[in-house]
């Protein structure tokens, strides 16, 4: 495995005349937890969607473990989007079987056990589950993969403080050893303690790309730096 797991070079993306990414470049090393930080609409999700292969009409280069986004990269990337991506007629049991069918690195037993631990009814239809239950299920589906790279897009958005703690705890306990986590959020306070490195995106540009240690060495917290950088943000 290469030391740099994710390499992004001069990534540009526009929707018509609206430019959302202006040539972003960065590397994500293996085994680190990286925060992708920025306010809503700054280009975080477009960046993530390009990395996971949901957006293909971008300019620039993306390499995951040396490979462009495609079948091979998708096999090693576990992605948790902001949205509920499961069909409403599915049950947790069916969703778990679905993931086990397509991902060799998916641990079905672990997923079934976690579903029970989280009090999810394996035969309940997703459309009848609460938003919180749906989020728990999606988190299980992602964290039960022994992936090299976990990409979590706003996993803490729209949930209460207790749930945030629960989600972070689940992520930290279940991600595979030596894996990398790219975690996008605008809620800095909750995740600061777990981050190794931060990327801050502002108006489609990468304005901060540094280790958390270097920030704290200056006597600031990540949240302080975030406030400093985004005090002008819309």
């Amino acid at each position: 495995m290469s030391e740099t797991l994710l390499k992004v070079r001069n990534l540009k993306k526009s929707y018509g005349s609206h430019q959302v990414l202006n040539g972003v470049s960065f590397d994500v090393p293996s085994g680190k937890i990286v925060g992708l930080l920025g306010p809503n609409g700054c280009g975080k999700t477009s960046m993530i969607k390009s990395i996971v292969g949901l957006i293909n009409d971008y300019e620039g280069k993306i390499l995951i473990n040396g490979k462009e986004p495609g079948v091979e990269s998708k096999a090693i990337v576990a992605y948790l989007p902001e949205k509920n991506y499961l069909a409403p007629w599915m049950t947790p049991k069916h969703a778990i079987s679905y993931m086990a069918d397509f991902y060799k690195n998916f641990d079905k037993e672990k997923a079934l056990n976690m579903a029970q631990t989280f009090n999810l009814d394996l035969n309940q239809k997703i459309k009848t589950m609460s938003k919180g239950q749906q989020e728990k299920l999606q988190l299980i589906l992602v964290m039960c993969r022994k992936a090299d790279l976990y990409i979590l897009d706003e996993p803490l958005g729209g949930v209460d403080l207790v749930s945030r703690e629960f989600i972070l705890d689940t992520i930290m306990k279940n991600h595979s050893e030596n894996s990398t986590i790219l975690l996008s959020t605008h809620l800095i306070y909750d995740i600061e303690r777990i981050l190794d490195r931060v990327l801050m995106v502002k108006g489609g540009d990468l304005v901060v790309n540094t280790d958390v240690e270097k920030i704290t060495a200056t006597g600031k917290s990540v949240e302080d730096l975030f406030r400093e950088v985004f005090s002008y943000a819309v």
Binding site: V52, G53, L54, V71, E72, K74, A75, V77, Y79, P81, K83, N84, Y85, L86, A87, F102, Y103
Partner: peptide, 18 residues
């Protein structure tokens, strides 16, 4: 429409399949 271009597309298009 739903499985490719709706919210379910987030799952379908990230499967390791051609």
């Amino acid at each position: 429409q739903r499985s490719l271009y709706g919210d379910q597309g987030y799952l379908t298009f990230t499967l390791p399949v051609k």
